[in-house]
Design a protein around this nucleic acid. Structure first.
Length: 764
DNA sequence: TTCGGAACCCTTTTT
DNA sequence: GGGTTCCGAA
């Protein structure tokens, strides 16, 4: 294959990105600019034209889907040699490394991977040992603090140092919990998701020779969605890339929407200073959307300050105007969306509905099913979260990993075999006191009566069964066979029948059947299907393998989930202040910018036609709320919109903003314009206050809370109002004299009250 | 040991 | 409003 074939059909910039084979390279890839295409061609070029051994290339992605697609498309270009490349997610690459060398850190090659549930269970044990009050230290608080620390590359000891002088004494308790939690993981021969990355970096730090061997091996490193990398991923990439620095990162700072998961936009913003010799390529031609959609999206994102600055352009036609619908309430909004879908010539599969929060999906579901329009919801409750599925998986984990006490704990009395809380506590205490694992303690039961008779007999039976399953596993039985044996051995379906109403029991049995099915399906694709490999697959490749038939269905999902996808016609709903942008982002300009990026991501998913809508009234947490149209809507020029509602209020508000724009030359609409929809006031004082508001929310440093700045009412504190009664402060707006508090009242819904005027009392 | 009802809490969630 | 979790009674 010659070079011309490898770059055929690429535009000049894309070509440049493909041909820059050595040294650091930053590919800034705007939405719809052919990013994947460039990556795939680049890999093919390295292998087919430069003669690079595929085993010297590692490509890191965030999702399994992205990894799969990349591998498949490389294979299409250059054939099966692509198989020997490392193309996988950060987590599965790290897992692979740790399976090989984890024993250096005290883990076996069969370590368990703990998800949310197991993490919580372990943390509860830790909290119990430390005598922590659940009200003071909810498990969620602990887990997010620990997760955050790991994302930042901060281990338990370092963390203790970090919080040693912290003003918040709770953090020192967290430090203790963190330490115990990590010990617990090690004892259970388990790692959580954060650990997969964290321990890999720790491994490389501790064993430089090992790092050297991987550095030697991976001559070319490629990272997808670089804007979403967190600190620990950043470090991992950095250490692997030295000293050759053949590091190619691809991303779009305007699509960074995961800061709340530890992603650092600075990683991509600072790439050029990290690697001064870096080549930078900008893919700015968009092949996806109409010019109208793109213009509107560009206007929205232009209001952000923290960005590289990039203007997407397209040769596509301008297409239809963006439909704007200001709904009376969410039912009205849903009616509009459903009507447009049902009267369209397009197929259901051409549509997508994007919302900010999952809670918004219900009303669209109802509307669609009333009209018998097929739809699919991406996200929500997952198959692998079902109790009965997790039970069975816990059995498999116990068979696979002797030290996994959390999974063992889960199944001790499932199905019920007369082992009560007291017996379990007894065993745990005994195990702790004698430095034994839970499994070792159970084995002792044969000779020692640690628990009362009935429980003892039952547990001895369980031990015997587990031993037998482990033997089967060692003899090389397939996971599905072992699984069937477990189900029969414990009489699972009989138990399900007995302890649920018939309909639920039926559903649960079907879930179990589906799990067995999935295991068999997986086995068919494997050369050597081992139990350990299956469990790894379940933990990391949490595939919701359902939406393959989505082609003829309307797709409903959160905007976060929509990143990377595209649809002919998109409905972006719920564009209201307080919801999108969410009121939690008001106090922090960085969060507000992230909300704006989210809006940008949502808009740029649309190929042909975009609808945007907002509700004036919406029930939030069961209570009614009055909402103003999102500032993002006002950042889009009116002439790009086609009004689909008969409500004149928005037009007036928007017209007011347009005037102000004309007057001040500023794009960012003043929030004063939509304070009272339909009655935009021209009073200079009002707009000055509005601009002041914006200044505060647009600053890149976090807004400082001065003493007279409402700091007596920090977000989250409980307050009482003489008229509205009790409530909780959700946020703060404005500065100086003009501080307003965003308060959710228990009985009266959400209000924005001026601190100066409102009769507020803080409650303890 | 199990259940039912009160209490609680609520963005987003690639792994 | 709705889902989950937790605690106390049977």
């Amino acid at each position: 294959m010659n070079v011309d074939d490898l770059v055929a059909g690429l535009n000049p910039v894309q070509r440049e990105a493909v041909l820059a084979s050595t040294g650091p390279l930053l590919i800034l890839a705007g939405a719809g600019s052919g990013k994947t295409r460039v990556i795939v061609h680049r890999i093919a070029y390295l292998i087919a034209a430069q003669g690079v051994d595929p085993r010297q290339i590692i490509a890191l992605t965030f999702t399994n889907k992205a990894a799969q697609e990349m591998r498949e498309r490389v294979r299409e270009m250059i054939g099966p040699v692509a198989q020997s490349m490392w193309i996988s997610t950060f987590h599965s690459s790290c897992s692979r490394i740790l399976r090989n060398h984890g024993e250096l850190l005290g883990f076996s090659s069969k370590f368990s991977i703990y998800g949310d549930k197991e993490q919580t269970a372990l943390l509860k044990e830790v909290a119990r040992k430390l005598n922590l009050q659940p009200t003071m230290f909810p498990t969620k608080y602990l887990s997010s603090a620990i997760e955050d620390a790991k994302n930042r590359g901060v281990g338990p000891d370092e963390y203790a140092v970090e919080v040693h002088h912290a003003p918040n004494p709770k953090l020192r308790v967290v430090a203790n919990a963190y330490k115990l939690y990590q010990q617990g993981l090690l004892e259970n021969d388990a790692l959580d998701f954060g650990d997969l990355l964290f321990q890999t970096v720790a491994l490389f730090n501790k064993f430089p020779d090992l790092l050297a061997s991987y550095r030697e091996r991976f001559n070319y490193i490629l990272v997808d969605e670089y804007q979403d990398t967190n600190e620990i991923q950043y470090r991992l990439i950095g250490m692997l890339a030295e000293p050759k620095r053949n590091l190619c990162v691809v991303g779009d700072d305007d699509q960074s929407i995961y800061s709340w998961r530890g992603a650092q936009i600075k990683n991509i913003l600072d790439f050029e200073s990290d690697y001064p010799e870096a080549k930078v390529v900008r893919l700015e031609e968009n092949y996806r959307s109409t010019a109208t959609i793109l213009n509107a999206a560009n206007r929205v994102i232009a209001a952000n300050k923290q960005r590289k600055g990039k203007d997407l352009w397209t040769n596509n036609q301008s297409g239809e105007l963006i439909s704007l619908y200001l709904a009376a309430n969410e039912a009205d909004e849903a009616r509009y969306v459903v009507k447009r879908i049902s009267t369209s010539v397009r197929e259901p599969g051409d549509f997508a509905i994007f919302y900010r929060t999952n809670a918004q999906s219900r009303i669209f579901e109802e509307g669609l099913s009333r009209k018998a329009i097929p739809y699919t919801i991406v996200g929500g409750t997952k198959f692998y979260d079902r109790a009965e599925v997790r039970d069975l998986l816990a059995y498999l984990k116990v068979v696979n990993n002797e030290r996994d006490g959390i999974s063992l704990l889960r199944i001790l009395n499932v199905p019920a075999r007369g082992v009560g809380k007291t017996s379990i506590e007894h065993l745990q205490t005994y195990a702790d006191a004698n430095g034994l694992t839970l499994w070792q303690t159970l084995e002792l039961l044969e000779s020692e009566a640690l628990v009362r008779g009935g429980a003892r007999t039952a547990l001895n039976g369980l031990v015997a069964m587990i031993r037998q399953w482990r033997r089967q596993e060692q003899e090389g039985r397939k996971p599905s066979v072992i699984c069937a044996d477990i189900l029969a051995g414990i009489g699972f379906s009989a138990w399900l029948l007995k302890h649920n109403d018939p309909i639920q029991a039926q559903a649960r049995q079907e879930n179990i059947a589906e799990l067995l099915n999935a295991i068999e399906l997986w086995e068919e694709e494997q050369e050597a299907p081992s139990l350990a490999a299956y469990l790894e697959n379940v933990a990391l490749i949490n595939d919701d393998h359902v939406d393959s038939a989505a082609s003829s269905q309307v797709t409903l999902m959160t905007i976060h989930r929509a990143k990377g996808l595209e649809f002919d016609e998109v409905f972006l709903v719920g564009l209201e202040e307080g919801l999108f942008p969410g009121n939690r982002s008001y106090e922090n300009p960085n969060l507000l910018e992230e909300e704006r990026r989210l809006c940008y991501v949502g808009m740029t998913r649309a190929r042909q036609k975009l609808h945007m809508s907002a509700c004036r009234k919406r029930r939030l947490y069961g209570k009614p709320a009055d909402n103003r149209p999102s500032r993002f809507l006002l950042e889009i020029p009116l002439e790009l919109f086609k009004r689909e509602d008969r409500n004149a209020a928005f037009a007036q508000a928007a017209a007011g903003v347009e005037e102000e724009r004309a007057r001040t030359g500023s794009f960012t609409g003043s929030s004063s314009a939509f304070r009272s929809p339909g009655r935009y006031r021209q009073k200079p004082a009002a707009s000055a206050a509005g601009r002041q508001n914006l200044e505060v929310s647009g600053k890149s440093a976090p807004a400082a809370a001065g003493p007279k700045n409402g700091s007596a009412f920090p977000p989250g504190c409980r307050v009482e109002h003489t008229v509205f009664g009790p409530g909780v402060v959700a946020g703060r707006k404005g500065s100086g004299e003009d501080v307003k508090l965003d308060i959710i009242f228990r009985d009266r819904g959400r209000k924005l009250l001026s601190l100066k005027i409102a009769a507020l009392k803080r409650l303890a």
